[in-house]
Structures are given as structure tokens and as C-alpha cells.
């Protein structure tokens, strides 16, 4: 490599580092997320469906009282989703038949590593925090509900019955409590240790360890490790995930990647369209101008031709008239001469 080229590369690197903009930690546009972020591992094989987590969640988040009390077991006969009054719900799945032991699964925001809600929000109300939680800022929210549309897990809910200050409602992974060094409400309340709070990386190790130790008890998959680019809530179960209401067809593509191609075309259109359309405009104007010139030339030509024809006709007519006149004069002269000759001849005769 030549010295000048090396110098150029060095200069490039220096310029990059000196830039005031935050630089990319990972290369080639591949991002692995916040390495020290927290998460929760939900082991459904330990969950007994007591709904203590729902109760604790309701309390720590000051949510309105539920329609049916938390100790009412009949609630579990319906499959529920999160709503504006419940950031988390526990559902029962009778996967082992009506007589076998049911499986319970807790549902709440999965705190995606690349959140679809954040990607969708046009006012930037959602933030993925370095601690792992995806938090929502109601003070800027317009209420378009694109986040509800975008969430692959159908988690965010909306306060449809509030006229003035409706909010999007969803689990915060108890972000304020975690900041204080406390556990999330649901994790703290769980009597069965079905929920484990910790660093996401450690939780994956724990989950794998359990699966390795008890291969008969678990399905060999940690749900949330790769789904939609990875989530901070992770799940291990003994029953196939799809039988417990998990979507297993979500793929591993992070949400922002789905729209990045279309968004990348925006500046291309802005860049190329004005030049292209301006060019077409100039060409069409020019075409019209040339057409007009040709038309004008054709008209002029036609006028000239007509003029020439008219001139020729006039000339011919004039000549004809002249000829006729000459002939008439000649005839008249001849006649006069003849008459004169007759007269002279008659006199002599």
C-alpha cells in the first residue's frame, strides 16, 4: 500500500472519530443490543396460575381495580390479552387434556431488543432503555395507535374510553423500580420462582442449563432469544410453544429492518424525481417549441408556394392578355390595311 493511500485511510479514520455524532459500536450495520440489559425468564413448568403477579402488577402500577377479583379462579377459563387495566395476564392452557395438569403462561410486554412499537411511533414516544425496558412517554403521544398495530405480540392497549388524555398502556418491566434497585412487581410476588430477573445474557445461560439438565421436562428452545430479533423476556416450557398461545411464525427479523428498505427509497425519490420530472418538462416544452417552429415554417412554406403559384398565374394571365391584345392590335392593323387596300384597289378599278 502506498504511503499516500495509507495516509488517506488514516485521515478518514481520524475524521470519523472526531465527528460529534455517536458512532456505531458494531460493524456492518449489525447491532447486538445493550449487552448489560436486564430481562425476565418465565419458566412455565413452575407456574401454578395463582395470579399473584397480576395482583402485584396492578398494585405497583396503580392500575384500576379489575372487573373480577384476582382470587377468582373462573377468570382463567377464558384466554385473555393485556388491556388498559392489566399490563399482564396469566392464561391457562389444557394441553394435557381436561384431566391432565394445565400449563399456565404469563403474558406481558416482551421488551423487544428492536421494538416494533418504537420503530412505528412517529413521535418517538417509545424508547429502548439500556436497562432493557421499552418505556412509553405519554406526554408526546398523539394517539395514532400504530404501536398497537405494529406489535407482533399484541401487547399495547389503548384507553379508548378516555376523551381527553387517552394513553397507550403497557408493561414497563417496572423500569422505575429497577432503577431503584428493586425487582419488578410480578417477579417479586411470584411464590413459585417461575419468574427470574437478571441480566439477559445470564438468563439465556440459566435457561439453557435447565434444558440441558432436564431434557425430558423442557422443549429445546428458549423463546425470545431470537424471535423478532430477540426479546428481554424469555420463556421455556414443557409443551410445544404454539399450544400455549405463542406465535412461532414471527421469524427473527427485527422490526426496524422490515421498513428500512422502503425508508431508504425516500431520499432516492427526493433526489431523482425533481431532476427527472424537470428533464421531462424541458423535453416536452422543447418538443412543443420545435413543433411550433415546424408549424410556422410549414405555414410560411405554404404561403410562399401559394404566392409563387399566384404570381405564375398572374404572369400567365398578363401574358395571355398581352398576347390577345397584340393579336387584336395586329388584327385591327391588318384589317385597316386590307380596308385601305380595297379602297385604293376599288378606285383604280
Amino acid at each position: 500500500m502506498s504511503t499516500s493511500r495509507r495516509k488517506f485511510l488514516k485521515w478518514l479514520t481520524a475524521a470519523g472519530a472526531a465527528s460529534a455524532l455517536p458512532s456505531v459500536a458494531e460493524g456492518h450495520g449489525h447491532f447486538t443490543g445493550y449487552s448489560d440489559s436486564y430481562g425476565v425468564l418465565h419458566d412455565t413448568t413452575l407456574c401454578v396460575g395463582c395470579r399473584s403477579c397480576e395482583k402485584a402488577c396492578n398494585e405497583v402500577n396503580d392500575l384500576p381495580a379489575p372487573d373480577r377479583p384476582f382470587d377468582d379462579p373462573t377468570v382463567l377459563s377464558d384466554v385473555r390479552r393485556t388491556d388498559e387495566k392489566a399490563y399482564t395476564v396469566v392464561n391457562r392452557y389444557d394441553v394435557n387434556g381436561p384431566s391432565g395438569s394445565p400449563v399456565f403462561r404469563k403474558l406481558q410486554c416482551n421488551h423487544c431488543k428492536e421494538p416494533a412499537c418504537a420503530s412505528a411511533c412517529f413521535v418517538g414516544a417509545f424508547t429502548k432503555t439500556p436497562e432493557g425496558a421499552v418505556v412509553y412517554d405519554a406526554s408526546v403521544c398523539v394517539g395514532c395507535r400504530y404501536c398497537l398495530m405494529a406489535c407482533p405480540f399484541d401487547i399495547p392497549a389503548y384507553e379508548y374510553n378516555k376523551a381527553l388524555e387517552p394513553r397507550v398502556m403497557k408493561c414497563t418491566m417496572c423500569h422505575p423500580r429497577v432503577a431503584e434497585g428493586k425487582l419488578p412487581g410480578c417477579v417479586e410476588a411470584c411464590p413459585m420462582e417461575a419468574l427470574t430477573f437478571g441480566k439477559r445474557d445470564d438468563l439465556i445461560t440459566i435457561a439453557r442449563e435447565r434444558i440441558r439438565k432436564y431434557p425430558d421436562r423442557y422443549i429445546d428452545h428458549v423463546y425470545g432469544e431470537t424471535e423478532v430479533g430477540g426479546t428481554n423476556w424469555l420463556y421455556i416450557t414443557g409443551a410445544p410453544f404454539e399450544t400455549l398461545g405463542f406465535r412461532t411464525d414471527l421469524g427473527v427479523t427485527p422490526a426496524p429492518e422490515l421498513t428500512s428498505g422502503a425508508l431508504a427509497m425516500v431520499p432516492v425519490v427526493i433526489g431523482v424525481w425533481p431532476a427527472l420530472l424537470g428533464g421531462i418538462y424541458i423535453m416536452s416544452q422543447r418538443k412543443e417549441k420545435i413543433a411550433n417552429q415546424e408549424k410556422a415554417a410549414a405555414v410560411k412554406d405554404a404561403i410562399n408556394t401559394t404566392q409563387a403559384k399566384a404570381d405564375a398565374a398572374l404572369k400567365a394571365a398578363t401574358e395571355k392578355a398581352k398576347n390577345e391584345k397584340d393579336k387584336a392590335v395586329e388584327k385591327a392593323v391588318k384589317k385597316a390595311l386590307d380596308d385601305a387596300a380595297k379602297q385604293t384597289g376599288g378606285g383604280e378599278a
Binding site: 412517529f122 413521535v123 403521544c141 398523539v142 394517539g143 395514532c144 425508508l263
Partner: peptide, 25 residues
């Protein structure tokens, strides 16, 4: 009628720009 807080419709441009959203565009 559709958005929850219509009086905030200028927010995406005036207050906080969510440029990653197709809806922003």
C-alpha cells in the same frame, strides 16, 4: 376523529421527530 389527541398532530414535527416511522414520512 381517529387519533386519540388530535390537538397534538403537529407534535411529530414540532416536539419529537420519530423519523424511524414510515408514518412520520
Amino acid at each position: 376523529y381517529d387519533v386519540g389527541r388530535p390537538w397534538r398532530l403537529p407534535y411529530p414535527f414540532a416536539v419529537n421527530q420519530g423519523v424511524t416511522s414510515v408514518m412520520f414520512e
